[in-house]
């Protein structure tokens, strides 16, 4: 069944569709009328690609994703400049449910499972926009369980009581139930053991190749993200400061030093570093 889905996807896409499924042009986001969080962010996600959005805490990764999925409104944020095009149509004014219907869904940071609903029910809420198409929803439920076999054992447990990794899987599986063409994946590695992070990234990669789902991935775990993405953008203080192929980024000296924790060739002397630190202590 996975194979047929792939076969259906591949011939049409290459021929007539434009290269990018999502393009963000120079957007600015303001929270609560005063706090400028994004100061002109532009990015492109090619159809069927995995693009990483990198950066430290507070760089604006989540805000960028929420601006695209239009979840900003619920947080009193607003896109004041620039444009966002999904499938070549501006989506600035579409509500989150309209976007989900047209195939663009966000998996929120921190998993956000419905704690008092069972895993099964959590997954079914993902199919909310598909109405009452019972048979096909049931088929997709089994498909999700085939990707996440360990969820199947826990399908009747409350989502509040399953492990963090299982919750992340539930959140991704829930998004899959809407039959997305584009997933905005926010920090899937947060608070998970390295082995689980790897497992989850493998599944995302597999979904990408099997189902042709495009992925925009916001991650702090730069190393992991650049292993699975083809292209990456680095955000700092609400601006894109660097972008390039995953390979180029991986080999960039600054990225190595600041995000991967691998220092470059000419090491700074430890004494110099100490000196710098000492100068900051003005009362000593």
């Amino acid at each position: 069944m996975q194979k047929t889905a792939q076969a259906k996807q591949s011939p049409g896409t290459a021929a007539e569709t434009p290269p990018s499924i999502l393009s963000v042009n120079n957007i600015e986001v303001i929270y609560d009328h005063v706090i400028l969080v994004l100061k002109g962010v532009s990015l492109e996600v090619p159809r069927g690609g995995i693009v990483a959005l990198l950066g430290a805490n507070g760089a604006g990764k989540s805000t960028t994703l929420k601006a695209i999925s239009n979840l900003l409104g619920a947080e009193r944020g607003v896109v004041t400049k620039g444009s966002i095009e999904y499938e070549n149509t501006p989506v600035h004014a579409s509500s989150p449910d309209e976007l989900v219907k047209s195939g663009c869904i966000q998996v929120m940071e921190g998993r956000h499972c419905f704690e008092h609903l069972t895993v099964d029910e959590n997954l079914l809420t993902g199919a909310h926009t598909r109405g009452n198409a019972r048979a096909s929803i049931k088929r997709d439920l089994e498909l999700v369980y085939s990707y996440f076999p360990r969820l199947k054992d826990r399908r009747n447990s409350l989502a509040g009581y399953i492990s963090g990794g299982e919750q992340q899987m539930t959140a991704i599986g829930r998004a899959l139930m809407s039959r997305p063409k584009m997933i905005l994946l926010d920090e899937p590695s947060m608070g998970l053991a390295p082995q689980l992070v790897e497992e989850i990234f493998e599944i995302v990669k597999q979904l990408n190749t099997d189902q042709g789902v495009s992925v925009l991935l916001a991650e702090q775990n730069t190393n992991m993200a650049l292993r699975y993405a083809q292209y990456g953008y680095v955000l700092e203080n609400g601006r894109v400061v660097m972008d390039g192929d995953a390979k180029t980024l991986r080999e960039n000296e600054d990225i190595k030093e600041f995000y991967l924790g691998i220092s470059g060739g000419d090491k700074k002397s430890f004494r110099e570093f100490k000196h710098y630190k000492r100068r900051k202590r003005w009362l000593a």
């Binding site: 929120m108 499972c113 704690e115 993902g126 926009t129 998004a175």
Partner: peptide
């Protein structure tokens, strides 16, 4: 349970 998550899966 979680109205933000509900929004994110397309519940109006």
């Amino acid at each position: 349970d979680d109205h933000q998550a509900a929004l994110s899966v397309g519940i109006s």
